[in-house]
Design a protein around this nucleic acid. Sequence first.
DNA 1: GATCAAACGGACCGAGCGGTCACTTTGACC
DNA 2: GGTCAAAGTGACCGCTCGGTCCGTTTGATC
Lengths: 199, 199
Amino acid sequence: MTSPPRTLRADAVRNRAILLEAAEKEFAERGPGASVADIARRAGVGKGTVFRHFASKDELIAAIVHMHISVLDATGRRLLTTADPGAALYEFLTAAAAQREQQDVSFLLTADDASAEVVALREQLYATIGALVDRAREAGAIRPDVTTTDVVLLMCAPNHVVSFVKDPPPDLWRRYLALIFDGLRPEGAHPLGPPPAPL
Amino acid sequence: MTSPPRTLRADAVRNRAILLEAAEKEFAERGPGASVADIARRAGVGKGTVFRHFASKDELIAAIVHMHISVLDATGRRLLTTADPGAALYEFLTAAAAQREQQDVSFLLTADDASAEVVALREQLYATIGALVDRAREAGAIRPDVTTTDVVLLMCAPNHVVSFVKDPPPDLWRRYLALIFDGLRPEGAHPLGPPPAPL
DNA sequence: GATCAAACGGACCGAGCGGTCACTTTGACC
DNA sequence: GGTCAAAGTGACCGCTCGGTCCGTTTGATC
């Protein structure tokens, strides 16, 4: 239990940030098979440095997941304070998809070997989404039978769907987000005509 | 150009079928990273036998994709002759999702290094889906702005969505198929209340 | 600027991968 | 049942990967 020193050296702090950014890009481009060596090369550091900061590749992945979930949760909490519950939920889903459009690491969420910290964070995000969904349901913006789990599961669909086309226009996912969200709405009106069609 | 003999030996025919089945299961369980050695072991043959039948792992994958697309296309063509165009499209999507529920190899479709034969087959399936979509649109069963590409891209979503939950009930995908399909319908009525919610 | 632990780097290791090959087994045909 | 090419086999090869290790460099502290 000899806890390591609390304060990192300046270069260590800098390299850790560079590494996370490089790993994020590498995973987004090459998928989960991206190699640690490539990540190190992209960051301009030695491979050993990667393992100094993260005990294993899985731990590096966990750190990235941690980042993404944190940002998303903060966005969700902010939207809980806005006026229109339906718009808030839609905006949250838009933010989530937009985040993944830049760096799609959604495949990392499947990892069920997550650390306790990541699990806790995930549950917190789940609770935040639950609050958004409850508000939207009470406001009649979505069907009464739509659950939090439904929204969580459907959340990643727009990006995944778009991933099948070779060079998707950068906002194609908006079309599928609109289409899918419409499936969650009650019998009433369709709000906005979906964005331009592909091909 | 010394073309190989036309007729396979009896044991070769048998082993080829066993191999395809084993590979299908192995890919469905372990994803695209499933190893050729494991597939051979599961089929009860030597690793060399795999490469006698399929020149490379990619060619084995292509053969499986070929099978799946063929079956799906046949189903689609059959449904083109039925009475209700909206129901036909919905039934087609149900069949596609049901097929993937047993053996989800949808990730193999992303492979853009496909052989000419697979590409041709894929285009044929695309045409069949296009016909189903056109019929449904003309019958007013889906929105006028929904394209064939939309349907193709959304086709895999129900299974993918479900893949996030650990032990999904075997027909959970039906819920998300219904939800997503509702998003494609025109302003009018929602047809059937979606199947039971998760959790 | 001397000191020293923290941080860095890259050669190195074992495991697992796709794919090959020389040898053995087997089924079709007479 | 004898023959022979087709089919099967598993040790083997080259390569890449995650992870380790130890000699070197660097930044904080005085």
